[in-house]
C-alpha cells in the first residue's frame, strides 16, 4: 500500500551546542555528544528536562546549528531543515486554517508536487486512521487525532528520518499507550529511521531498539542501552521491569532510595 521510504543513517559526532556564547546567560546545552543511528532503527533520547534531548533533536532537524562537531544524514552534512527529516512536536502545531487533509497534504503542497496526488493524501489519512475527518478543522478534533494528523503530515514526504519531540507528552495515559502501539506499527510499515525524545522511561522501553540515556548540566549521553526485547512488548513482563530498574539506577533512583516510600 504505502511505498517504503529509504531509511537514513544519522551520525552525530562530538556535537557541542552552547547558547548565547560569551554572555552572562551562556548555557552549554550539549557537551561533545556522539551517537550513531542505524538506518531503520528506533532510538529514544531519554532524560529529565534540561538534558539537551530536544536540542539534539532540533540540531538533527536543522532548526539549530551546532557550535562544534558534525551531524550528517547518509554522509551529507546537515545544514538546515529539509523534508527528508520530518518533525513532530509535542504540540501538534497543525495549521488551524487548514482542514485535516490540507494539513496532511502540506508537505506535498510546499514542495509544489501536490497536483494529482489526492490518492496519496487519502492513503496517509487512512494510515493514521483519520478517514471521515478529512474536512474538519484542527480545533474540532481531539489531541490524539491532531497528533496523528501531525504524524501523517511529517510522513507524507517519505522522510529518511522521523524526528519526534515528546509527541505523546500532552495526551492522557490511555490515549498515550494506544498511540505508542500505533507509532510502532507505522514505523514498522514505513521502515523509516526514528529518533524519539521522551522523559517517560516505560515509553522509551516500549518503543525503542536502543535508548540514549541523557543527563543534564551539561547535556551528555550517559549511557546507550540496547533493548533486547521482542515486539510487541508487554509492559508487565519481568524483562520489561528489569529494564526499567536498570534505567532507574542510571538516574540514581535505585531501590534503596525507593524503599522509604514503600507501605
Amino acid at each position: 500500500m504505502v511505498e517504503i521510504a529509504e531509511a537514513g543513517r544519522v551520525s552525530i559526532r562530538g556535537v557541542t551546542k552552547i547558547f548565547n556564547p560569551g554572555t552572562e546567560s551562556e548555557l552549554t546545552a550539549l557537551d561533545r555528544v556522539s551517537l550513531e543511528v542505524e538506518p531503520g532503527s528506533f532510538i529514544s533520547l531519554l532524560g529529565p528536562s534540561g538534558c539537551g534531548k530536544s536540542t539534539l533533536l532540533r540540531l538533527v532537524a536543522g532548526l539549530e546549528q551546532a557550535t562544534s562537531g558534525s551531524l550528517t544524514l547518509d554522509g551529507e552534512e546537515i545544514r538546515g531543515p529539509n523534508y527528508l527529516r520530518g518533525l513532530v512536536f509535542q504540540d501538534p502545531t497543525l495549521f488551524p486554517w487548514k482542514t485535516i487533509s490540507q494539513n496532511i497534504a502540506t508537505g506535498l503542497d510546499a514542495r509544489g508536487i501536490l497536483a494529482g496526488k489526492k490518492d496519496k493524501v487519502d492513503e496517509y489519512i487512512n494510515l493514521v486512521g483519520l478517514k471521515g475527518f478529512e474536512n474538519v478543522y484542527p480545533h474540532q478534533v481531539s489531541g490524539g487525532m491532531a497528533q496523528r494528523a501531525a504524524l501523517a503530515r511529517a510522513l507524507i514526504n517519505h522522510p529518511k528520518v522521523l524526528l519526534m519531540d515528546e509527541p505523546l507528552g500532552a495526551l492522557d495515559a490511555f490515549t498515550r499507550m494506544r498511540m505508542q502501539t500505533e507509532i510502532l506499527q507505522i514505523w514498522e510499515s514505513r521502515g523509516t529511521t526514528a529518533l524519539f525524545v521522551t522523559h517517560d522511561i516505560d515509553e522509551a522501553i516500549f518503543l525503542s531498539d536502543r535508548i540514549a540515556v541523557m543527563t543534564p548540566r551539561p547535556g551528555k549521553i550517559k549511557e546507550l542501552i540496547e533493548v533486547p526485547l521482542g515486539r510487541p512488548r508487554a509492559r508487565n513482563h519481568p524483562d520489561f521491569i528489569r529494564m526499567r530498574n536498570k534505567i532507574l539506577q542510571i538516574f540514581d533512583f535505585s531501590e534503596e532510595h525507593l524503599l522509604s516510600y514503600y507501605i
Binding site: L63, G80, G107, A110, R111, R153, N157, L163
Partner: peptide
C-alpha cells in the same frame, strides 16, 4: 519550523 521541515 514545521513548514521548513516539510520542505517549504
Amino acid at each position: 519550523e514545521v513548514g521548513k521541515t516539510l520542505g517549504a
